[in-house]
Simulated assay, not measured.
Amino acid sequence: MNRDLPAEAAVRAALGTVIDPELRRPLDELGMLDAVTIDGGTVRVKVLLTIAGCPLRDSITADTEAALSRVDGVERVEVELGVMDQAQRDALKAQLKGAGGRRGIPFNEPSSLTRVYAVASGKGGVGKSSVTVNLAAAMAAQGLRVGIVDADVYGFSVPALMGITQQPTRVDELILPPVAHGVKVISIGMFVEGNQPISWRGPMLHRALEQFLTDVYFGDLDVLFLDLPPGTGDIAISVAQLLPSSELLVVTTPQSAAADVAERAGAMAAQTGQRVAGVIENMSWLELPDGGKLELFGAGGGSTVAARLSATLDAAIPLLGSIPLDVSLREGGDAGTPLVLGRGDSRARDELLGIAAALARRPRGLEGLKLPVSIR
């Protein structure tokens, strides 16, 4: 039985649904569709990649084929991959970054509504990175546009926790971050060979963080997370300087010693002028087979930190949640799949989802913005 030939309008509409995996915008909007021809039931499309070695070329091809195969009358899809010339790349960069490729930090612009959370801890080993990736993945699953900057240069772990193995794509000086679980991620770990250590001093750390914030194209995000190294050293100071509107999320365990040093990380906001969005207590207890709770690291550390910071900063600092120990949280990290994306009963998962929902409900502020409204 003969099928009706595909309509050009339907083919164009289908191509408009194909999203570039890195830029998260339609291919046609980015100037990546070079030619579309319809020959009977065969549709031929030429897609221009940003660079010759684009790591997501197979994904773009598969998405294009899938979108066109759903169009009535299409019997065969042929996708040819080309590469943008310099003029086309310049036009793309101008579209993304503005004329002249402005190099400022977009999250500091008066028009930016991105809420920036710097996830801090007083000491290592409290699960700060696991909390970061799970909160980010949970918000992305809610439909928010989310990014992560792995600012823990010495102890980077976010790529592994998110299951990212590919390097970022470079379009001249513009860096396109990999996307995993709907979250855009950048980390110094994506630029080193194997498991090589990073041995940098303060100025190098500041420059690396600054480059992540200026040269990496995140687009318009609802939320940006920064996974900070433990303590109150160079990176914490650089974040306060480079992103003065960022808010701290302080992660601690219930142990009193951990709570003491976590308080110092949060109290730094009094010196930097940042706000503390809240305290998160991790590893709060271990649920026993009989339903009881074993408090391996003591109790009350999170509420103690919240109370002390409230007094120090003269502001109400909430305890956002208490996350119990859960083997599936560790297993999800090892597998590169955040726990919040799984199914089944998990008290840790429920607590993380609750914290993410509470943070997501906080509106992106309009205070101080000049809105384009005129009174006639």
Rank of each mutant, 00 (worst) to 15 (best):
M1E: 05
R3A: 14
A7Y: 00
V11I: 15
A13Y: 00
G16Q: 08
V18E: 02
R24V: 13
D28Y: 10
L30R: 03
L30I: 12
D34K: 15
V36P: 11
T42A: 10
V43A: 05
L48W: 06
T50D: 01
I51H: 07
G53V: 06
A62L: 13
D63P: 12
D63E: 09
D72K: 15
A91I: 10
L92C: 07
K93F: 05
K93N: 11
Q95F: 01
A99K: 15
R102I: 14
R103P: 12
N108D: 01
S112D: 04
R115H: 05
A118Q: 00
S129N: 02
S129K: 06
S130R: 01
M139W: 11
Q142M: 15
Q142L: 09
L144C: 08
V146P: 12
I148A: 04
V149W: 01
T165C: 06
E173F: 09
E173A: 12
I175W: 02
K184N: 10
K184F: 07
S187N: 04
Q196G: 12
W200C: 12
R201I: 12
G202E: 10
P203H: 06
M204K: 14
D215L: 11
Y217I: 00
Y217Q: 01
L221F: 02
D227V: 09
L228H: 08
P229C: 08
S246M: 11
V251G: 08
T253S: 11
P254Y: 00
Q255A: 04
V261Y: 04
A267Q: 08
A270T: 11
Q271E: 09
R275M: 14
A277M: 10
A277F: 09
A277C: 06
G278C: 05
I280H: 00
W285Y: 15
L286A: 15
G291T: 10
E295S: 14
G300D: 00
G302P: 11
S303E: 13
V305W: 00
S310P: 14
L313N: 05
P324G: 09
L325I: 15
S328N: 14
S328P: 10
R343V: 12
G344W: 05
D345W: 08
R349Y: 00
D350C: 00
E351G: 04
P363R: 08
V373G: 01
